[in-house]
Simulated assay, not measured.
Amino acid sequence: MALRWRRTHLGTEADRATFRTLHTASLASPALREGLTERSAARSVKHLRALLGTPAVAVTDAAGLLAWDGIGEHHGVHAAPLAGTTIEQGSTRVAAADELRCLTASCPLRQVVISPLVVEGTVVGTLQAFTDVATASLVRACDEVAAWVSTQLELAELDASRNRLMEAEVRALRAQISPHFIYNSLGAIASFVRTDPDRARELLLEFADFTRYSFRRHGEFTTLSEELRSIERYLLLEQARFGDRLGVTLRIAPEVLPVAIPFLCIQPLVENAVRHGVADQGRGHITIAAIDNGLECLIEVEDDGVGEDPERVRRALAGDAELDSTGLGNVDVRLRSTFGDQYGLVVETAPGAGTKVIVRVPKFSPGVHA
């Protein structure tokens, strides 16, 4: 016996209406998460009009109209004056025909509901719903949609603040590049100018490439491959200074070289190893390993130096700037901000036992691209 399939709708009409509303909101959300701009307003305004179900919708900032969708575009000139009053009052209001001043007899738009868009307590713009009659339900709907838009804009501001913080942290790391390292590197290069000009030339090129990478302006993220190449340059310069007193072992799995990581998150760990693991005792050995661990990459930086007091390390990772001379806390915060709290630094150390720093990062993470 043949079975006959008949398409059925799941859920009640209320369920379907809820789904449509959520779906429409999800279409507007990505644009609004970019902040309140002409581009984001233009991309989201049609979805906002679908949410409100009105003949026309306008989005403004504090200066004027950003985007319009629907009929009656001649009312666009009224958007800025309408927004001004609402921004001053800070609450949803209804403007009648006398404020619209419409001279087009056939235009059905006679009233407009104007709701403020608020970010961190400041009214930054308005959502305006144009209609023939502004019912109480429309006023309530416009107020709710404006509140949702405001939430998206606040999330955009949080994202922007996070990016500004990350940039500030990277600038702080750049500022921590030791002047002594620069002086000692140039001194080591100068010492080879007469005795070994070819090596002096090579070291000078490595120094130029190292500083170019460290002070580059683009990109919050880099690949492990690029970071390791910069570290290699750094170690070549330090080996020119220490000679055979500085030993280096690299164990790098090729599979993890393309992994994206925050810019300058491994280099400070190596600088710390040289400073406290080698310079403090005049000689030492550093081991750098990058290990393929399934869905994750493990990066280990280990030295056989004098070690650290675990309590001092804990305080440095907790944000004590006086103890964080090489930016370990900075790196820890950026790793956690990027990948989640489970991906912070792990430091194994004790006085006289050397130091091992372990970084665990996912091979793939949404939004993290070099």
Rank of each mutant, 00 (worst) to 15 (best):
E206H: 04
V306W: 00
G277Y: 01
L345N: 06
V193M: 11
L109I: 15
G76A: 15
R275P: 02
R164W: 10
N293L: 09
L48P: 09
R312L: 02
R162C: 09
T135I: 14
T355F: 00
A273N: 01
V149E: 01
E73Y: 15
V306S: 04
L22N: 12
L317H: 01
L52G: 06
L257E: 11
L65H: 09
R336Y: 14
H75W: 09
L295V: 12
I87M: 06
A17R: 15
V139A: 14
Q89G: 11
E120F: 07
S230Q: 03
A147I: 01
I288W: 01
F207C: 06
G367H: 08
G284A: 05
L323G: 11
A147W: 02
S225T: 04
R315T: 03
L323V: 13
T12L: 09
T126H: 07
L295H: 12
A316C: 03
S44W: 08
L10T: 13
H47S: 11
S161Y: 07
V347T: 04
Q89H: 08
A17G: 14
V139H: 12
E238V: 03
I266R: 00
A80Y: 06
A318S: 12
V259D: 03
P55R: 06
G219D: 12
E232R: 08
T151K: 00
A63Y: 06
F263A: 11
D332V: 10
D196Q: 08
E227T: 07
A175P: 15
F364L: 15
E232N: 07
V133D: 05
V170M: 08
V347C: 05
R4V: 14
I288D: 00
S91C: 06
C107E: 09
F19H: 15
P258F: 12
S191I: 01
Q281E: 00
D143E: 13
A160Y: 12
I358L: 07
L269I: 05
A96N: 12
A188N: 02
A96S: 14
E88L: 03
G307V: 05
A105Y: 13
E206I: 03
R283N: 01
I87E: 01
E302T: 05
N184T: 12
Y183T: 14
H285C: 07
R315P: 01
A58V: 12
H180Q: 12
G90K: 07
L246N: 04
T223W: 04
V331T: 11
D304N: 11
A96C: 10
D303L: 07
R275W: 02
R171D: 15
G243W: 01
S40T: 13
Q152M: 15
M166V: 14
S106D: 08
K363L: 07
A25P: 00
L250P: 04
T8I: 07
V347L: 02
L203Q: 00
S150Y: 02
A200H: 04
F210A: 05
L27W: 06
H75D: 06
W68P: 08
L317E: 01
L22T: 10
S106R: 10
G367S: 10
D61Y: 03
A350H: 00
R233C: 01
T21H: 15
R217W: 08
L295E: 15
S115C: 09
I266Y: 00
D292I: 08
V193S: 10
R174G: 12
